[in-house]
Design a protein around this nucleic acid. Structure first.
Lengths: 245, 245
DNA sequence: GGCCTTGTTGAATCTCCAA
DNA sequence: ATTGGAGATTCAACAAGGC
């Protein structure tokens, strides 16, 4: 948060926030649970700073559970920003099958724009058509169309424990998901602010796609992880990494 | 709304609400905000009455766009009911592709329970397993398991113009979606309250599955439609149909 | 390579017990 | 009485490994 306050206003093109959800998960020995209302107050402060550092035509994405994002939206965002969309990341899961309600298997992502004139690069995130054999679709493809626009919902698998992508970090999001959001809202050389770098998987994507990044992560162990990941992956060191230990 | 106020407290097992979403009308800034707030006030009143008539162990489902449901939840539901889940209905679409954000292709469904002890019938809505060839899954099936629990998100196609299910009503929801919710929360002979019967497709499902129903629809034309649908479908007249014209 | 089998584990949820 | 947090429970999905 201190790092965030030091950043100049209107300085970043894209923000991705995937904070702790306040559900008592153990992050390498530490848990960070607060009362719900305190958590929301903190979340609003965080979002306020984010919106300050975001450029007027930039895009911010905040991921959380639906309830938390509803409160952020109603108690803060909707009062200040008229252009907000909600997206959902949906996935399959094999845990937590409650007998009295449906199992939670999605997250909310709020897309906040400061103006209607936000920069957005639809063509960079074209998705494969659902029915590529359709005659009209084939005509589209022949005419140079790269695919359909993404919808407000996207399905990606959770990063499973056994997956190669998986690190020691407790709750990684799939790189593909972040890549979609990043590509949709930035071009090469643009600056992306990743709140809570976590395991560094977002940073890796930024580097691969040649976006500059700024990140903050509280946990020293994760910082080491991120650093080594960047080095071992032979990622050019010109990308700036700020870390708050 | 008047009909709703006439219903006795704690008298229905399940409520499904799919109200008008208050969209399609462009007001300029301030007017929009006022109209939106008026809408939310109305929506809260509606939900308040619903929760009054719902049995203690019943289930209510309110469908709307994410923003509207966020406001309902934060400004009313979360203050009174601790057991709320948000589900999403996701679908494919080929309209409304905005160049500056992802196309809205999902709706929010709030599942409100008055207590943790709500009646819920998991077995009636078992879904197919994702990997039915797994030996352990096959063992489950052999032991009488009907499948896995549904997740918090479900994909069903929109009711298209060309579909047989389609009537003249503007925005029908798929019968399968309603069927899932109905089966999960009621048994034969239970009573279901359908707010805004619309074209009567929900009523048809209630009748088919032998649930009693109560509904209200403002538009006389739709009431005629519903009636003829029931009659032509040779549906027993024991099911009570209240209509407010 | 595909197909079958098995290992592994959970930003899920439930159940206690203590404050 | 309520709340809340730690620990136990559960089970189905993914990945990997073997044939």
């Amino acid at each position: 948060m201190d790092l965030l306050k030091d950043l100049p206003a209107k300085s970043v093109d894209m923000i991705f926030g995937d904070p702790d959800y306040n559900v008592g998960i153990n992050y390498n020995g530490k848990t960070y649970t607060k009362k719900f209302n305190d958590y929301i107050d903190w979340y609003i402060d965080l979002a306020t700073e984010c919106m300050r550092v975001l450029k007027d035509r930039g895009n911010a994405f905040m991921m959380n559970y639906p309830k938390q994002n509803s409160h952020l939206r109603v108690k803060y965002l909707d009062e200040h920003f008229p252009h907000i969309s909600e997206y959902v990341w949906v996935y399959n899961t094999n845990v937590g099958h409650s007998p009295r309600r449906f199992t939670t298997a999605h997250r909310s992502i709020l897309h906040i724009r400061k103006s209607k004139e936000n920069k957005f690069y639809k063509k960079q995130v074209a998705q494969p058509y659902k029915n590529p054999t359709d005659k009209r679709i084939q005509q589209n493809l022949k005419n140079g169309s790269l695919g359909r626009m993404p919808y407000s919902w996207m399905e990606y698998n959770l990063v499973k424990n056994v997956s190669k992508e998986k690190t020691m970090h407790a709750c990684q999001i799939p790189q593909q998901l972040f890549e979609l959001l990043l590509k949709s809202s930035t071009k090469k050389g643009d600056t992306c602010l990743v709140l809570f770098g976590g395991s560094g998987s977002e940073i890796e994507v930024c580097a691969k796609l040649e976006r500059n990044f700024i990140t903050a992560e509280l946990h020293p162990t994760y910082i080491e992880l991120m650093k080594s990941r960047l080095e071992n992956g032979a990622i050019p060191s010109k990308y700036k990494l700020k870390a708050k230990a």
